[in-house]
Amino acid sequence: AKPPKTVTVKVEVTNADGETQTRTVTLTNLPKDLKPGDTVTLPETGQTARIVEITP
């Protein structure tokens, strides 16, 4: 079996106070056609994050 493909992405997350924070997260099994501006759900927090940058 192939190991899951991990991708490092820079995302913007809005916290409970309405502040936008930029975080770098490593995600696995992202859709192939994901692009900056799309939103993903962070598995560890369940927060919705907007992708700023994808590092191949």
Results as ranks from 00 to 15, higher is better:
T39G: 02
E19L: 11
R23W: 15
A16I: 09
G37F: 02
T55S: 13
T28H: 12
L27H: 01
R23G: 03
T14D: 05
L30S: 09
K5W: 14
Q21I: 15
E53M: 07
Q21R: 07
D33E: 11
N15C: 09
L30R: 04
L42E: 02
G18I: 01
T55K: 11
R50A: 04
V9F: 05
I54R: 01
N15P: 02
A1Q: 12
N15I: 06
D33P: 08
E12Y: 06
K2G: 12
L27C: 09
K35R: 10
N15W: 05
L30W: 15
T41A: 05
V52W: 02
V25S: 01
E12I: 11
P56L: 14
T28G: 07
Q21Y: 15
T48V: 14
R23I: 15
P43Q: 06
T41E: 08
G46K: 03
T26Y: 12
K32H: 14
D38V: 03
G46C: 05
L30I: 13
T41C: 05
A16N: 08
P4R: 05
T24N: 07
V40C: 03
E44N: 08
V9D: 00
K35M: 08
T8H: 07
N15E: 06
L30K: 03
K5G: 09
K2N: 13
A1W: 14
L27Y: 07
T28K: 10
A49K: 00
Q47D: 10
P56M: 14
D38G: 03
E19C: 11
I51H: 00
N15R: 05
R50I: 15
D38M: 09
V13L: 10
P31V: 12
K35G: 06
G37H: 01
T6L: 10
N29M: 08
I51W: 00
T26I: 13
T22S: 06
P31L: 13
A49D: 00
T22C: 08
P3M: 02
G46A: 03
P56Q: 12
E12K: 05
A49P: 00
T6A: 12
K2P: 11
R50Q: 09
Q21E: 15
A1S: 12
P36S: 04
K5D: 11
E44H: 10
T24W: 15
V13A: 03
K5H: 14
P31W: 14
T8K: 08
T14M: 12
V52A: 02
V9K: 00
V11D: 00
P31T: 14
K5M: 13
V25D: 01
V7C: 06
V25I: 14
E44F: 08
T20K: 11
E19D: 09
I54N: 01
T28S: 12
T26W: 09
T8N: 06
L42T: 01
K5A: 11
T22Q: 11
A16E: 13
G18D: 02
K32F: 15
K10E: 03
A49L: 05
Q21C: 09
T45D: 08
T55D: 11
T8F: 09
T26M: 10
L27M: 09
A16W: 09
T39D: 05
E19Y: 11
I51M: 01
K5R: 14
T28W: 10
E53C: 06
T55F: 15
P3I: 04
V9E: 00
P4Y: 08
V13E: 02
V40S: 00
T6R: 13
T24E: 09
G37M: 01
T14G: 03
T41G: 02
T28I: 11
T28A: 11
L34M: 08
T55L: 15
T6N: 10
A49Q: 00
P3K: 04
Q21A: 10
P56F: 14
I54S: 02
Q47K: 04
K10N: 04
T55A: 13
T24A: 04
P43G: 05
Q21K: 07
Q21L: 12
K32L: 12
D38N: 03
T45F: 05
P36Q: 05
V9N: 00
E19A: 10
A16L: 08
V13Q: 03
L42S: 01
P36R: 05
K32W: 15
V52R: 02
V13C: 04
K32A: 15
T41W: 15
E53W: 12
A16P: 10
T6W: 15
L30G: 09
T14K: 10
E12P: 00
D33R: 06
T26H: 11
T22H: 10
V52H: 02
D17C: 08
Q47W: 06
T20M: 09
L34V: 11
T55W: 15
I51V: 15
T6P: 10
I51L: 04
A1K: 09
T28F: 10
T20F: 07
Q21V: 15
A49S: 02
K35F: 05
T6H: 12
R50V: 15
P43A: 07
T6C: 09
E44M: 08
E44P: 05
E12A: 07
N29C: 07
L27V: 05
T6K: 10
I51E: 00
T14I: 13
G37W: 02
V7R: 04
D17G: 07
L42Y: 02
E12F: 06
G37P: 00
R23Y: 15
E44L: 10
V11N: 00
D38P: 00
R23N: 04
G18T: 01
A16D: 10
R50L: 15
D17M: 11
G37K: 01
T48M: 10
I51D: 00
T22G: 03
K2M: 13
D38Q: 04
P4G: 13
L27D: 01
T22R: 07
V11G: 00
I51R: 00
V7I: 12
L27N: 01
D33W: 13
P31M: 13
V13G: 01
K2E: 12
D17T: 07
L42C: 09
D33H: 12
R50M: 14
P56Y: 15
A16Y: 07
T55C: 13
V52G: 01
P31I: 13
T48E: 12
E53Q: 07
T39Y: 15
P56I: 13
P4H: 13
R23Q: 12
T41F: 15
P56H: 14
V40I: 15
T45W: 04
A1P: 13
E12W: 08
A1D: 12
D17E: 11
D33C: 07
D33I: 06
N29S: 09
L42F: 05
I51P: 00
G46E: 04
E53L: 05
K10S: 04
E44W: 09
V7T: 09
T20E: 04
T26N: 08
R23K: 14
T8I: 14
V9I: 11
E44V: 09
P4F: 10
V52I: 14
V7F: 15
K10M: 11
D38E: 03
K2S: 13
Q47L: 09
T8C: 06
P3H: 08
D33T: 08
T45N: 08
K10L: 15
T8A: 05
V40Q: 00
I51G: 00
L42P: 00
L34T: 07
D38C: 02
I54P: 01
T28N: 09
Q47E: 15
G46M: 04
V11T: 01
T26E: 10
R50T: 15
T39H: 10
A1E: 12
V7D: 03
T39M: 14
E53N: 05
T48Y: 07
V11R: 00
K32S: 14
A49H: 03
V11S: 00
V25K: 01
G37V: 00
T24G: 01
T45Y: 04
T45K: 02
K32R: 11
V11Y: 10
P36C: 07
T55I: 15
I51S: 00
G37A: 01
T8S: 08
K5Y: 15
K10Q: 06
T45Q: 03
G46I: 01
N15Y: 08
T41H: 08
A16Q: 10
N15G: 12
K2I: 13
P31Y: 14
T39A: 05
P43I: 08
